[in-house]
Design a protein around this nucleic acid. Structure first.
Lengths: 335, 335
DNA sequence: CTGAAAGCGCTTACAG
DNA sequence: CTGAAAGCGCTTACAG
C-alpha cells in the first residue's frame, strides 16, 4: 500500500504535533497525558498502524518481552499442553513464548539454558529434569526469572509449579478399593525417578490407609513406555498370588499392560483392572478406554506464565512461591 | 560469581587491547582480521563469556534472528512435529523459533500475523489454513520471509513446502489392491477441505488406474474426528454392496471406523481392512495397529526452516520455490 | 589490517 | 502536563 519504510515513533510525534516523549508516555501510561493530547496521539497511532520496534525498546528497557519453556521432548503431548497454557497467558500480556527442546540424553540442557540467557529471555520455565543446581542458578544470576515444574522450593532457585501427583494416585487407588479391588499391583518407570516416584508414594500411602498389603511381588519397575508396560505386566500378573488390579505410573505403561493382559486372555476390567496416569490422547482411544488421572498440564503452563509475569513487574524481590495444582480422576472402562 | 553487570563488547575490546570494531568483525567474520588479533580476541570472548546483546544487534541489523510458525492447534502432534523440525535447523543456525497458535474459528490468524510482523520476526511459516491472500501479503510486504505449508506457488506469496499426499494415498490404495481387496470405500473429513481433498484425489486416481469402480455409496464425508469415523463407517459398511476395505482421510477417522467395525462384529483385517493417514502416535497404539501413511511432518518443518534461512541471506530476491516431500507407507495389522 | 564515530529507535531522567 | 537530550549496545560506512 504505502510507500517504503516502517513508521516510527518520530513519525507519530510529528503527525500528532507532540514530542516523542509524549507519544512514548501515551503508549506506556507511565505519566499523565492530557485527555485531548492522548486522544490525538492514539488516533494517529491507529491511523498509521504504529508498533514500537521491539529491539529498540528492548535495548532501552533490558527486557525482551519473551518467555521461555525448556522441555526434554517437544513432541510429548504433555509438554505441548504446558506450552499451550503458557502461550495463552503470555500472549494476552503481549509476551511471546519460545519453547526449546533439550533432550535428557547428553548435556543439552546447559547449552539451551545458555542460549536463552544469552537471548535475555525475561522468564524461563524449566520442565521436570535432571537439572543441576548450577544450571538453574545460571538463570537466576543472569537476571531472568525462573519457574521449575515439579520438586520443591529451594533457596535461590525461583518458584515452583507442580501437580498434586501423590494425591492423584491416592485418589485412583481409592477408586479401585471402592469398586472392590483388593490386591493391587504397581508398575513404575524407574525407581526414584520423577514423576514415577511421587505416584508410587501415593500408591503406597493409599494401600496403607485402606489397610491393604504392599507386596513386593506386586511391584515392578521397567520404563515409561508401552514395552515397559508389557514387561511389567508379565511380571506382576505371574505373581504367586496374582493381583486383581494393576496401577501403572503412566498411560503408556498402562497401554502396554493392556497388551499383555489381552494376550494372556484376561478380560479387563472383569478379571483385572488396569489404570494409567496423565490422560494422554491415546488413553481414551484405546480399547477398553483407560481409567486414568488427568494431569493438568495446560493449567501448569498458565500458572507458570502468570507467576513469571507477576515476578517481572515486581519492584522488590518478593517471597518464593510454590503452586500446587489439583488432579482429576477420569473413570473410564478399564477399572 | 563475578560482580555485577553483563559484559559488553566494550569490555572485550579493552581487555583485548583492540577497538570494538575489531571485536565485532571477529564475531561476524565480515572483514579480515589478522590471525594474532583474532586469536587474542577470541580468547577474551571465551574467557569473559561474552555474548552480544540481541536487542542492540537487532536494532542495528533490523533482524531478530527469530523464525515463527503459525498453526491452528498447538497440541496437534502433527504440528508439534513440524515445530520440532524447524527448531532443529533454526537452533543450529543460532535462530530461535516461536510457535503461535491461531485457531481456525474466528479471526485469530490476522491478529497473530500482526503480532509476529510487529515483532519483526525474520521468517514466518504458515500452516495449512483458510488464510486469505491479504493476511499472507501482510507478511511479505512487511519484509518478513514467508513459507506456506501446502497448496501451490502463487505470485507474491513466498515459498511452499508440502507432502506428496495424493501420491501417498495412491500408494496406500495400491497396497490394498495388491493384497486382494477390490471394493474400497473412502471416509473423508469434509468435501473440498484440505488435507482431505488431495487424499481423496489419490484414492480416486488409484482406483481408476486399477480399473476399480468409484461407487458413490462407498464414499462418506463426515469430520476429521473419531466420531466422524464411527458415523462414516456405519454409512459405508451398510452400503448395498458393502466394501471389503475402508480407506480413511486420517488416523482419527480410522480409529472411529475401527470402533464401528468391532461393534458390528467385523474382524479387521479379515472381514474388512481399515487404513488411516498421518501416522499419529495412537495409530500404533490402537488394536489392531493401523496401517497408515507417514506424514513427514518433521521434515516439512526442517525444510521450511532451511528455505527461510536461505532466503534470509540472499542478497537479491531469487525465484520462488515449491518443495514436495515424499510420503512413506506404514503397513501394520489393520490392512 | 585496524579505528573513531555515527546512528539504529526507543525510554527516561532532568528540566520547566 | 510537556519537551530536549542522553544513552541503551551494537554494526558499519568512512577513513587511513
Amino acid at each position: 500500500m504505502s510507500g517504503g519504510g516502517r513508521i516510527k515513533i518520530n513519525d507519530v510525534a510529528s503527525a500528532a504535533g507532540v514530542s516523542v516523549t509524549t507519544v512514548s508516555h501515551v503508549l506506556s501510561g507511565r505519566r499523565p497525558v492530557s485527555a485531548a493530547t492522548r486522544a490525538r496521539v492514539e488516533d494517529v497511532i491507529e491511523r498509521l498502524g504504529y508498533q514500537a520496534d521491539p529491539s529498540a525498546r528492548g535495548l532501552r528497557t533490558q527486557r525482551t518481552h519473551t518467555l521461555g519453556l525448556v522441555v526434554p521432548d517437544i513432541t510429548n503431548p504433555f509438554n505441548t499442553a504446558i506450552a499451550a497454557g503458557m502461550q495463552e497467558i503470555a500472549l494476552a500480556h503481549d509476551y511471546l513464548t519460545v519453547v526449546c527442546e533439550a533432550p535428557m540424553d547428553g548435556p543439552h540442557l546447559p547449552a539451551v539454558i545458555r542460549q536463552l540467557v544469552a537471548r535475555r529471555i525475561d522468564g524461563i520455565v524449566v520442565g521436570r529434569y535432571g537439572a543441576t543446581r548450577s544450571d538453574l542458578e545460571r538463570i537466576v544470576t543472569s537476571g531472568s526469572k525462573l519457574v521449575r515444574l515439579g520438586g520443591h522450593l529451594e533457596p535461590g532457585l525461583g518458584d515452583v509449579v507442580r501437580a498434586a501427583e501423590t494425591e492423584g494416585m491416592c485418589d485412583l487407588v481409592n477408586h479401585l478399593v471402592g469398586r472392590g479391588y483388593g490386591r493391587i499391583a504397581f508398575i513404575g518407570g524407574a525407581p526414584g525417578v520423577e514423576p514415577g516416584q511421587e505416584r508410587f508414594l501415593g500408591y503406597r500411602q493409599a494401600l496403607e490407609t485402606a489397610g491393604l498389603p504392599v507386596a513386593d511381588e506386586l511391584v515392578a519397575w521397567t520404563g515409561f513406555t508401552r514395552e515397559g508396560g508389557r514387561l511389567g505386566a508379565r511380571t506382576v500378573l505371574n505373581a504367586r498370588t496374582p493381583p486383581d488390579a494393576v496401577v501403572c505410573a503412566n498411560d503408556l505403561i498402562a497401554i502396554g499392560a493392556l497388551d499383555t493382559a489381552r494376550a494372556a486372555g484376561y478380560r479387563v476390567p472383569d478379571d483385572v483392572a488396569i489404570t494409567g496416569y496423565d490422560d494422554i490422547e491415546a488413553a481414551s482411544l484405546v480399547s477398553p478406554a483407560l481409567t486414568t488421572v488427568l494431569n493438568p498440564a495446560r493449567e501448569i503452563g498458565s500458572s507458570a506464565a502468570r507467576l513469571l509475569l507477576d515476578r517481572l513487574d515486581e519492584t522488590s524481590p518478593g517471597t518464593a512461591r510454590e503452586i500446587v495444582l489439583a488432579h482429576r480422576l477420569m473413570p473410564r472402562e478399564s477399572a
